[in-house]
């Protein structure tokens, strides 16, 4: 762990808190995936991990590498930008697929097709 020891104390505490927050949000999101009862409720849970969970982890990584290397290391930002653009697409497609399947079967209460 010698490269982490090179961080100044404030950066070490900041990175630690950010990493814990990011992992915490991702964990709560996945727990929601397990605890909520039906599919349309569960769809909302993973967004926690893709928004704030990813945000905190990316910021932690940026702070850690920028302070350790003494110059701005920003390419982690691409992960954040990419996830914010793609998550809506995947979730939207999944909900539409689920809605279509439920309509075809006609079991669950879903809005009727137009």
């Amino acid at each position: 762990m010698n490269h982490l020891d090179a961080l100044p104390p404030w950066a070490a505490v900041l990175v630690g808190v950010l990493v814990l927050l990011g992992a915490g949000f991702a964990f709560v999101g996945s727990l929601g995936l397990l605890r909520l009862r039906d599919f349309y409720k569960r769809v909302h849970a993973p967004t926690l991990g893709t928004t704030l969970g990813t945000f905190f982890m990316v910021v932690a990584s940026i702070v850690c590498f920028s302070v350790a290397q003494g110059r701005p290391v920003l390419h982690e930002m691409l992960i954040g930008v990419f996830l914010t653009l793609t998550t809506p697409i995947t979730l939207m497609l999944l909900v539409r697929a689920a809605l279509y399947r439920n309509r075809v079967e006609g079991q669950q209460r879903v809005p009727p097709p137009r």
């Binding site: 020891d5 104390p9 404030w10 505490v13 990175v15 630690g16 814990l20 992992a23």
Partner: peptide
Amino acid sequence: MSHAFLGIAIVAA
């Protein structure tokens, strides 16, 4: 002290 915290925090995360 703060580095020990960082190590524990990363493992916990």
